[in-house]
């Protein structure tokens, strides 16, 4: 039962054990069904079989070399998309005229799913790295743009009034008041953007690639290795989880001042 006291009384249980119960139950049922012969190994291999394949692929370095290819693509694409999204979002937040000039354009482009761009980008850029990095950049761009815009717009006018009274110029007010106050919102966008970037790379690799974790899954299907496919799927989940964890840690460090609000929300 959710009560505020619970978290304090059993911190270890709540933070580390509780989240593991559901996955553990699923694995247990899955393993038992496999052992009893209800699940065909050629369709759904048992968790133990998948774990053995995982260990083998991790030991040989196969898995990590594929993951590395995908991660490099994500970092390139996310870097470009997030940088452009931040700059344009801040600019639109600061200039209502620019915002108005672009609002129809962004409203039109934003609802297009990232994967819809893949065939078009392959036509324009070929199946090289360029098209994949661009897909990721597009995926990361939108949430970052919107959160940067929202962050700037959400600056409390009372803070800006203080800057005026204290004779601060436009530039100083921007750097010391508007940007810090936009940062929590921007971070939310970066976090969402990174998640979308990771999902986009896998999508792009499933469609056209000769390396990467998405390619690994596609190839395993062609050669009928369901255990390898599942290793790929699980690795995508784990990598995504790890990336999100790192972003949250970074946010905690950079936005120490914002933690009071975060804790009371949680």
């Amino acid at each position: 039962m959710p009560s505020p006291g619970n978290n304090r009384r059993f911190p270890f249980f709540n933070r580390l054990v509780l989240p593991l119960i559901v996955p553990a139950l699923i694995l247990l049922v899955w393993q038992v069904l496999s052992d009893r012969g209800f699940l065909r190994p050629s369709i759904l291999p048992s968790p133990l079989a998948v774990t053995r394949t995982f260990q083998g692929m991790a030991a040989s370095g196969d898995l990590f070399s594929q993951l590395k290819v995908s991660l490099i693509r994500v970092f390139e694409g996310f870097g470009i998309g997030a940088a452009l999204g931040t700059l344009l979002g801040l600019a639109m937040g600061l200039s209502p005229r620019l915002d108005r000039a672009l609002t129809l354009m962004t409203g039109l482009l934003r609802p297009i799913p990232t994967i819809a761009w893949i065939p078009v980008l392959i036509l324009w850029m070929g199946i090289d790295e360029g098209s994949k990095v661009t897909v990721i950049a597009v995926g990361a761009f939108w949430p970052v743009l919107l959160s940067a815009l929202q962050g700037v717009r959400g600056t409390d006018p009372k803070y800006l009034e203080v800057a005026r009274i204290l004779e601060k110029g436009r530039w100083e007010a921007l750097i010391r008041v508007v940007l810090p106050s936009a940062l929590p919102s921007l971070f939310t966008g970066l976090r969402v953007g990174l998640g979308i970037a990771w999902a986009s790379v896998v999508g792009a690799e499933l469609i056209a690639a000769s390396s990467g974790i998405g390619y690994m899954i596609m190839y395993a299907r062609e050669v009928s290795q369901p255990d390898v496919m599942l290793v790929g799927i699980v690795s995508i989940g784990l990598t995504g989880l790890l990336m999100d964890f790192l972003v949250v840690q970074l946010e905690r460090r950079l936005l120490k001042w914002n933690q009071a609000g975060k804790e009371s929300q949680a």
Binding site: K158, Y159, V162, R176, P180, L183, L255, W257, N258
Partner: peptide, 11 residues
């Protein structure tokens, strides 16, 4: 000037 709310910058 001092207002009813402190208006300190939280960052």
């Amino acid at each position: 000037m001092v207002f009813q709310e402190p208006r300190l910058f939280p960052w």
